[in-house]
Simulated scan of single mutants.
Amino acid sequence: MEPHAYTLCCPPQATVPKVARDFVVSVLRSLDLPHLTDSAALCTSELVTNSYVHARSHGAAALGSLLRLAVEPALVRISVYDGNPVPPRPRGARDEDEGGRGLALVDALADAWGHVRGAPLGFTGREGKGVWCELGTGRV
């Protein structure tokens, strides 16, 4: 398989996690990687949801986010960029909390995850960040 890269511009709307999830699943199915769709969909949903929620709380919501999906023979990398420069911070959620488990889920499902400062091609027009995760394809 040759490397492929896909990009989705995500407006700051509550429907974006579902749209982004469907986008990633569609790409992975079309590239004959259906065994990754469940984990990739959940990781995508968590990263995009975190971007939507936390960018809004820091005044960067109007920019939305940018999803980049890079598919290589051995791995799939999902990156979500936004205008909020604050790095992601996993937190322990209590049983009664409705949220707070996103990065813990990404950590459990992905082979690796992390963040970078800035965004590609000046997407945000100011300092922002990208949060990414990688899933092995099982192929070489």
Score class of each variant (00 low, 15 high):
residue 20 A to H: 03
residue 41 A to T: 03
residue 113 W to Y: 15
residue 23 F to W: 02
residue 41 A to F: 03
residue 100 G to D: 09
residue 133 C to F: 04
residue 22 D to R: 03
residue 21 R to M: 11
residue 9 C to R: 06
residue 111 D to P: 13
residue 53 V to Q: 08
residue 117 R to P: 09
residue 27 V to P: 02
residue 99 G to V: 14
residue 6 Y to T: 02
residue 73 P to I: 13
residue 57 S to C: 07
residue 35 H to K: 03
residue 26 S to K: 14
residue 14 A to C: 04
residue 104 A to E: 14
residue 63 L to T: 03
residue 93 A to C: 09
residue 66 L to P: 03
residue 88 P to N: 14
residue 132 W to H: 10
residue 117 R to D: 14
residue 21 R to G: 00
residue 93 A to D: 03
residue 81 Y to N: 05
residue 27 V to G: 05
residue 138 G to S: 01
residue 50 N to H: 15
residue 101 R to W: 11
residue 31 L to Y: 05
residue 122 G to A: 09
residue 61 A to W: 01
residue 10 C to W: 00
residue 124 T to Y: 02
residue 71 V to D: 09
residue 129 K to Q: 11
residue 24 V to I: 06
residue 139 R to K: 10
residue 57 S to E: 10
residue 89 R to Q: 13
residue 121 L to F: 09
residue 4 H to N: 01
residue 134 E to A: 11
residue 109 L to C: 08
residue 37 T to F: 07
residue 117 R to S: 15
residue 17 P to H: 08
residue 107 D to M: 06
residue 70 A to Y: 03
residue 21 R to S: 04
residue 67 L to D: 01
residue 71 V to P: 03
residue 86 V to K: 09
residue 17 P to I: 07
residue 14 A to S: 11
residue 92 G to M: 08
residue 59 G to C: 00
residue 46 E to Q: 13
residue 134 E to G: 08
residue 11 P to S: 11
residue 68 R to K: 15
residue 66 L to G: 01
residue 13 Q to A: 14
residue 56 R to C: 06
residue 11 P to V: 08
residue 123 F to S: 04
residue 140 V to D: 02
residue 90 P to M: 09
residue 33 L to F: 10
residue 132 W to L: 09
residue 59 G to L: 02
residue 106 V to R: 02
residue 120 P to Q: 12
residue 99 G to N: 13
residue 104 A to T: 13
residue 32 D to M: 12
residue 94 R to H: 07
residue 15 T to V: 09
residue 89 R to M: 15
residue 30 S to W: 07
residue 61 A to K: 04
residue 27 V to I: 15
